[in-house]
């Protein structure tokens, strides 16, 4: 019924630009990466193929399985630490602070570090931890210890601390958002029914904030799983993570098919996590309706 006009054609052209861009420069590259994961390496070239050798290698060679398991472990530890720090913080912001102004200010203070260079925030821990770093030297000059503790730098603890530091705001944000959306009337109703703060938390707040916890946890997990700066800066020899492995495959080891297969595994894991998160968030939103 509508007659196509020149302006409509222009609109169509204008609107196909972003779609074309995303298709060509985003979707096709991801698909290609998945495809390359099935290719074969014939040093120094890679030839198109369809075989599962790369995946087989990733799952059987202990060199790779160790790293994958370690990365999962560290990402899980970071997620746990971030939750322990982030949840009470978000709870305090929403339920204890009564002034809107103060609440926004403290919330901003938690979020602002995200705007400060990620690399620099990882780097500061290299200065702080370590044999002659700020922490050890401060403790020594205060006379609390006699010799530097090397408990901190170049090990997994240092990585967990650093990654938690970097990603804790990602945990706070979604939890804060869901807590803020819980109608205050529900809490008053619970207290009115004679349930104390702890019971109210267990029966009302915790179930209703689960969606935010899941979202924050998944975000933190994905981000720390894929991080490759912290391992290099504070990780040390047993700190190699999946990201470093990937880097090697595309660098020194020059095995793009294997690297692509590993990257595809990460992609699948993230997609699965996103699906779970999406489901949890929808379920939580349904609860609040």
């Amino acid at each position: 019924m509508r007659r196509p006009s020149s302006s409509m054609l222009m609109t169509a052209g204008l609107f196909s630009l972003p779609l074309g861009w995303a298709l060509l420069l985003l979707i096709v590259p991801y698909i290609l990466m998945i495809a390359v994961g099935f290719w074969t390496r014939q040093f120094p070239l890679f030839v198109p193929d369809f075989q599962f050798g790369n995946y087989l290698q990733l799952f059987s060679d202990p060199q790779y399985t160790t790293v994958i398991l370690r990365t999962l472990k560290i990402a899980a530890m970071v997620t746990g630490c971030a939750l322990i720090l982030g949840y009470p913080l978000a709870y305090f912001l929403v339920f204890t602070i009564r002034s809107d102004k103060l609440r926004n200010l403290v919330y901003m203070a938690v979020i602002v570090p995200l705007w400060v260079s990620y690399l620099l925030r990882a780097y500061t821990w290299k200065i702080i931890l370590g044999t002659d770093g700020a922490l050890n030297s401060a403790l020594m000059s205060l006379g609390l210890i006699d010799a530097p503790l090397d408990a901190f730098l170049y090990n997994q603890t240092a990585m967990v601390i650093t990654l938690t530091y970097i990603f804790v705001p990602f945990m706070v944000m979604p939890i804060y958002a869901v807590l803020e959306n819980i109608p205050k009337g529900l809490i008053e109703a619970s207290e009115d029914l004679g349930i104390g703060p702890l019971g109210t938390f267990r029966h009302v707040i915790a179930p209703l904030s689960l969606g935010g916890v899941v979202a924050g946890a998944m975000m933190t997990f994905c981000l720390s799983f894929g991080d490759f700066v912290a391992p290099v800066l504070v990780g040390g020899p047993d700190g190699t993570m999946v990201a470093n492995l990937l880097q090697t495959q595309f660098g020194a080891a020059l095995n793009w098919p294997l690297g692509s297969a590993l990257a595809t595994l990460v992609l699948i894991m993230v997609l699965a996590i996103l699906a779970v998160t999406g489901w949890a968030e929808r379920a939580s939103a349904r609860n609040l309706r």
């Binding site: 894929g226 490759f228 990937l246 690297g259 996590i273």
Partner: peptide
């Protein structure tokens, strides 16, 4: 936004 940047980087490099 949620995928480790490295994976996106690798996909782009391949392409």
């Amino acid at each position: 936004l949620s995928l480790p940047g490295l994976v996106t980087g690798i996909a782009m490099l391949n392409f």
